[in-house]
Write a protein that binds this DNA or RNA. Sequence first.
DNA 1: TTTCTGTACTAATCA
DNA 2: AGTACAGAAA
Length: 743
Amino acid sequence: MDYINELNNSQRDAVLNIEGPCLVIAGAGSGKTRVLTYRIAHLIKQHNKDPFSILALTFTNKASNEMKERIEKVVGTDARNLWMGTFHSIFSRILRSEGSRIGYPSNFTIYDTKDSKSLIKSIVKEQGFDSKLYKENYVYNRISNAKNKLISCNEYLKNKIIQNEDASSLRPKIGIIYKKYVDRCFKSQAMDFDDLLFNTNTLFKEHTDILNKYQQLFKYVLIDEFQDTNFSQYLITKKLSSVGRNICVVGDDAQSIYAFRGADINNILNFEKDYPELQIIKLEQNYRSTKNIVGAANSVIEKNRSKISKKIWTDNHVGELISIKKSYSDNQEGKMVASLIFEEKNKKQLSNSNFAVLYRTNSQSRAIEESLRRIGINYKVYGSLSFYQRKEVKDIIAYLRFVANQNDEQSLRRIINLPRRGIGKTTIEKIILISNEKNIRLWDVLLNIKKYFNPRVSGAVGKFTDLIKGFILFVENNDVYASASHIASISGLMKELYNDKTIEGLNRYENVQELLNSIKEHIDNSSDRKDISIDSFLQEISLLTDQDTDNDESGEEYISLMTVHMAKGLEFHVVFVVGMEEDLFPSQMMLSSRKDLEEERRLFYVAITRSMRKLYLTYSNTRYRYGILKECQPSRFIEEIDKKYTENMVFGSSKANFAKNLIQKNQKEIDSHRKLRHVPSENFHRSEINNLKEGMKVEHQKFGYGSIQKLDINSHQQKAIVNFKLVGKKTLLLSFAKLRIVS
DNA sequence: TTTCTGTACTAATCA
DNA sequence: AGTACAGAAA
């Protein structure tokens, strides 16, 4: 019971009142994690609740691991029996054991975002839709949003409002793509990330016996970062806790920054309607930051209209003022930050791990990295390409995935011609077409390849299926590690990487070695016999992200460089928020509506409140964006901070013209570039080949305007000789060249 | 079918 | 600036 004394009054309320629904509004730095962990520990230790009956959901593996560790410190190894993890990991666990009821095997594959997008892309292509209009990013987000709102593809097609939206964005076919996409995922026995939640809802809706089972099991439900839940997550937890009604959610509406991926702030605002007997506890004392920082943060968030009223305050020192610093270029900004870090380190005797540099977009890290490297300060960039996303790693995993599940279309596409074995794009597309038309498994098309293809192709495919058959046999009698090593070498992937002696090649080879090592580690650490199977390994990694794998053995301390989004939940003594410029932070894409701007402001609020003792805000007059130098204005957010908390520090003005010159020079280069190139007219479209006549004036997208000298339509390859103004005579193949008739 | 080259595009992020 | 990919050539 020692831990009770570490808590203030409202924290104690939140920990001790274990019965009934409870909403904890936890301001930044108010000890939210402490409350959650102690509440769980209290349930187990004081009230003798069975850890198996407690469900605790978080958004990141990191958060759940951290909490588990802290609970274990209080209650011991009992903590390991908690149902604690991310939404996705907990519900994929349930789906693996109950999924057969909705037609999935227990070893279903999980598609990551890249798999999903590439599947969408191929569907768009197969359907003959315009790939410019139906870009996979756009379609993916549309589908993802629908799933998060629990709108199935059939409902999507029926829903008038949605159909109107798609029609007015000139993309009426999205519903059809959605339907095809769902079919193909199911056929591949695969779920994407959203399916893990969507299908859990389906399971609970259609099979009440299963719902009842878990309602009985989970006597206590706790949710972290509740402001980030989407409708799908909200409904699952509502259903699960509707019997015991012991649901405790913790969140902060001011830190809701994930609306773009479906998070719905109304979940927090409407929670009271669902549970009239709700107890609301506000944690308003900030233990993290100085008075200046808390005051500044409050003065910013006040500008938002929609919020739950609360007064965050602190007992901490007043502390230093917030420094606002201007520079003339992104590179100079980097240098300035590096030298300020150097000074602060010496002045306050801080170590690298006390510093963080936060930015709005990942691309801003480059300039900072460069100057830190030059000055010799260790740093670590978070959120670059994740280990499991690397091509060479994904390749090996695709082999494992296909060996485990021969219906997995995305893995098949990846490995069938890797390393090269003479099976090209067209063949793969045909195979998938046959599988869809005849409604048979991919693997059955491959096994009966001679029925459908000529000897050359079926020979190549035959070699591939023999290879996979061998792997399937091998896997039955060996653990994952042996299997992965076997596959890596027999497939020829290892050899190909080994022969690549470039620096990148060496790197890739090392990455594969590292993957094999991590698999070895996985089976060495597992106590259970079944943990050494391929399935178990694939399940483990499919829900891992980059931050979960960063094990630091070097013991060296480093400065953290990351986006503001990634910094949520973290704290540092000294924080730099760089690139405080209009159109960057707030992002130009978030200026169109109050709702978007308010989310952007909350993001800034998150950035400010990461800092414990000292905060720097920096901006630059000029910045390279997409390879072009742009002039920048300071961010409106700087103005929004109450002046009594800030000090302005401007660097000398001797270089005032420096920026202007740079911009002029840059503009000249762009202009000269433009002159050499034909810019296609706005209404450019391809004219019907049959309408082309000799002597006509035509436009070509690249070569510009010209006249047709000669047409050759009769031979099997239709050609035209065109005399262009810009580039002279060209012979064009009409099956390729797009020509627009001008007159 | 494979390899090479020019072009188009570009947030944020978790699972 | 950097990358992913479509189109053209081999």
